[in-house]
């Protein structure tokens, strides 16, 4: 069974046409991988579908825009995977 990271990296690669080897757990989806907002919408949809969750992207963006968070905790690939695992764990409870 693929890990969360393998699945997420595969989704980013296929939806945004980014070579898999360019993606690392430390990559920032927007700043490093240059994924734009529309492409991130596609990534969000694929992640939601793959993991049966609903990534709270609106809340995240709200927190970033209000200066409460920098966004690294959501948009760095490794951190994004941790967020996904947390959401899945919450669903399983």
């Amino acid at each position: 069974m693929a890990s969360t990271y393998e699945t997420v990296a595969g989704i980013i690669s296929s939806t945004s046409d980014i070579p898999l080897e360019r993606i690392t757990p430390q990559s920032h989806v927007m700043k490093d991988l240059e994924v734009d907002s529309l492409a991130f919408l596609d990534i969000t949809f694929e992640i939601d579908q793959a993991f049966g969750i609903k990534l709270p992207v609106e809340d995240w963006m709200g927190r970033v825009n209000e200066g409460k968070d920098k966004g690294d905790e959501y948009f760095i690939v490794g951190n994004l995977c941790s967020q996904i695992d947390s959401l899945r764990a919450a669903l399983a409870e």
Binding site: L41, T44, F45, D48, Q49, K54, L55, P56, V57, E58, D59, M61
Partner: peptide, 8 residues
């Protein structure tokens, strides 16, 4: 699919 701030 109804996501956060978007729907397909």
């Amino acid at each position: 699919h109804a996501g956060s701030g978007y729907a397909v």
